[in-house]
Design a protein around this nucleic acid. Structure first.
Length: 603
RNA sequence: GCCCCUGUAGCUCAACGGACAGAGCACCAGCCUUCUAAGCUGUUGGUUGUGGGUUCGAAUCCCGCCAGGGGCGCCA
């Protein structure tokens, strides 16, 4: 906001420097710290340093010269419309806005834009975010939740920032792991089927863990046990071969169990309010892979070492690098079957050609960093102009205090378990803390709060860090948490409800009284929202929005505590503060929406 | 051997190369007949792993070292 004022001031500074032969460096504006007033700040260190380097000007130390320039420039900007005063401090020029104008402008803009406040102008580019890609025949665990939440929030951010956005999911519905479940189901549990979408999904995970135990080589195993294990393994491999050959029995088995998993996945996505636009499945990507390999060989990018070896791309060599960096990627097995890399290359081509995406974002854990660097480089060699705009959003694992989660050992924390526990905890708190929640909404609100806590805990850590999952921390409702932000929304709503006003029937009001520092801070935070959206989207970092939302809620809580609204001393102040509360509620709601967290009216 | 990530307060984490490195949790001291205490206010707590370098200015950029994690031609 206020780019017009900024531009006016910049023009004045530039004119002054040009007239006085000062080699002005690019101006970077930031907020003024520790001020308690609004304004913006820029420094002249770089300019002073440039001057010294050019041998111009007086021989002053850089900080002193910067201060001198700031003082000179200060005189130029005093009379600008909307500016109250300016000051030169330690080499910085601080420009303060007229509080009443500024406050009114911010609040009016929020109230008129509503849900669209902060939305960026269309950027004319299409971005596809690929996330929510768990394997089927496993249950959805807390690590999948991190992936899905990161991806969804990123999608919401880039969409709101102005990108045409496509959400894509890529479940791994085939592979040896999937076949292992099929085999064990067919061998030991054929015909059984638990009731309930989640129960069925979780049951498959249990079968997987059991099957792995049966197939794993044990210490000190007897010859009989070894023979049994090898025979099981042979059955499993035979089943994979049959699947590949399209055997009707195996395919039918696969389809049925696959649907159980996908049912569970769709249910979880619904709980998280995630709507996937495009579903890619590994099983169908398989078919596409072979052709692109031929194309890459024909173009001289890939080397075919068959039948002795696989099809490979010597990336470093093709790029002319002497040190090993991207290494060599195998893109097709020597027997002609597809690999993960084959599928990803084929899918990327499809994204570019069929979906016309300009940017392609992959939300996948950090262990696959090299894989994606290799894929992106091959896309570049292949000649796709979108290759430089492919981005791997790598995130750390969610581990348990006792170590890594392991589906094979059945040592996983399921999303549904945590969700249920979250709802239980909120319900018991509601009894204690909330008096006025209607009986028929208690569960719904508990779900919103519980999920809010869980989701925020996944977003409040930068994505490149591992999260050691502690349920008490994830489901904390105090301090820097989802419920803290939701509570700010509820309190704002509470005031408006009590005043019996809607955003639509707020009285106009002027902020022509002396504002408290809490009001100033709150308005400052509100005005930051559009920039926070752009920053989070440009850097592909949900954390930026998570941090912003907390700061905003924090400013509101302080305001709420210190500044009376309904008890204001006069009618104009009351109306102005009601507008401010309505604006704050709106921006908190917008922030929560981007974070995929519900904004309840009561809690 | 090579590559990537991480190292900041007791713990969990922030900080476009810029002003006194900030929050939360925990600890301690206050604040509920007053718009919801899932809250507010205050106190305590730091040679940013380490040694150099670049810069007017470094937690941030570059080099070395230490510690932890991950990856490196037919797993995904």
């Amino acid at each position: 906001m206020f780019k017009d004022i900024q531009q006016t001031i910049e023009d004045k500074i530039k004119a002054y420097c040009a007239a006085n032969d000062i080699p002005l460096a690019a101006l970077k504006w930031t907020a003024i710290p520790f001020s308690g007033e609004w304004g913006m700040s820029t420094s002249f260190f770089q300019t002073a340093a440039d001057e010294v380097r050019a041998g111009k000007g007086k021989k002053l130390p850089v900080p002193q010269r910067a201060q001198e320039i700031a003082e000179q420039v200060k005189a130029e900007v005093g009379g600008v419309e909307g500016i109250s005063h300016a000051e030169a401090v330690k080499g910085y020029l601080n420009v303060y806005f007229k509080t009443s104008d500024y406050a009114r402008r911010v609040v009016d803009e929020v109230l008129s834009a509503g849900d669209d406040f902060g939305r960026g102008r269309p950027k004319g580019e299409r971005v596809m975010v690929e996330y929510a890609q768990p394997n089927t025949h496993h249950s959805f665990h807390i690590g999948h939740a991190r992936n899905t939440i990161l991806g969804e929030v990123l999608a919401r951010l880039v969409e709101f920032a102005g990108f045409d956005t496509i959400r894509a999911s890529y479940p791994g519905d085939i592979g040896l792991g999937v076949i292992t479940v099929l085999w064990a189901y067919d061998r030991f549990y054929k015909g059984q089927e638990p009731q309930g979408v989640h129960e069925r999904g979780q049951w498959l995970l249990k079968i997987y863990a059991e099957a792995t135990a049966k197939l794993e080589k044990k210490e000190n195993e007897t010859p009989e046990e070894a023979a049994q294990r090898e025979s099981y393994d042979a059955e499993r491999r035979e089943m994979l071969r049959k699947w590949d050959a399209g055997d009707p029995y195996v395919r039918e088995l696969w389809n049925t169990t696959r649907e159980w998993s996908l049912d569970e996945l769709r249910e979880v996505l619904k709980m998280l309010d995630v709507n996937i636009d495009v579903w890619f499945y590994e099983s169908t990507a398989h078919e596409l892979g072979k052709e692109i390999v031929d194309e890459l060989i024909a173009k001289g990018i890939a080397d075919d070492e068959r039948p002795e070896g696989p099809v490979i791309v010597k990336i470093d060599k093709k790029l002319g690098l002497s040190k090993e960096k991207y290494r060599t990627m195998v893109i097709l097995r020597s027997d002609g079957t597809a690999l993960y890399s084959t599928n990803d290359l084929a899918l990327a081509k499809q994204k570019f050609e069929q979906y016309h995406v300009d940017r392609s974002i992959y939300v996948v854990d950090f262990r696959q960093s090299l894989h994606f660097q290799q894929v992106f480089k091959i896309l570049e060699l292949w000649g796709f102009p979108q290759a430089p705009k492919c981005y791997h959003l790598a995130y750390g694992y969610v581990t348990l205090p006792e170590g890594a989660m392991s589906a094979r050992r059945g040592r996983v924390v399921l999303f549904k378990e945590v969700y249920d526990e979250a709802v239980r905890r909120v319900l018991s708190l509601e009894t204690e803390r909330s008096g006025n929640i209607p009986e028929n909404e208690r569960v719904k609100i508990a779900e919103q709060i519980g999920l809010g806590a869980l989701v925020y805990s996944m977003l409040a850590v930068d994505n490149n860090k591992d999260i050691v999952f502690d349920i008490n921390e994830a489901l904390s409702f105090d301090g820097r948490t989802g419920p803290y932000i939701q509570n700010a929304h509820v309190r704002a709503n509470s005031i408006l409800k009590k005043a019996n006003v809607q955003a639509a029937n707020l009285q106009p009001a002027a902020f022509n009284f002396e504002l408290t520092k809490h009001e100033i801070e709150l308005i400052e935070q509100i005005s930051r929202f559009p920039d926070a959206v752009q920053q989070a989207a440009n850097e592909y970092r949900p954390l930026v929005m998570a941090a912003y939302a907390y700061d905003l809620a924090n400013a509101f809580h302080s305001f709420y505590h210190a500044v009376p609204v309904l008890q204001s001393e006069d009618e104009n102040i009351k109306n102005a503060r009601l507008r401010l509360v309505a604006a704050a509620k709106q921006v908190i709601a917008n922030s929560l929406r981007l974070l995929d967290i519900q904004a309840p009216e009561v809690m």
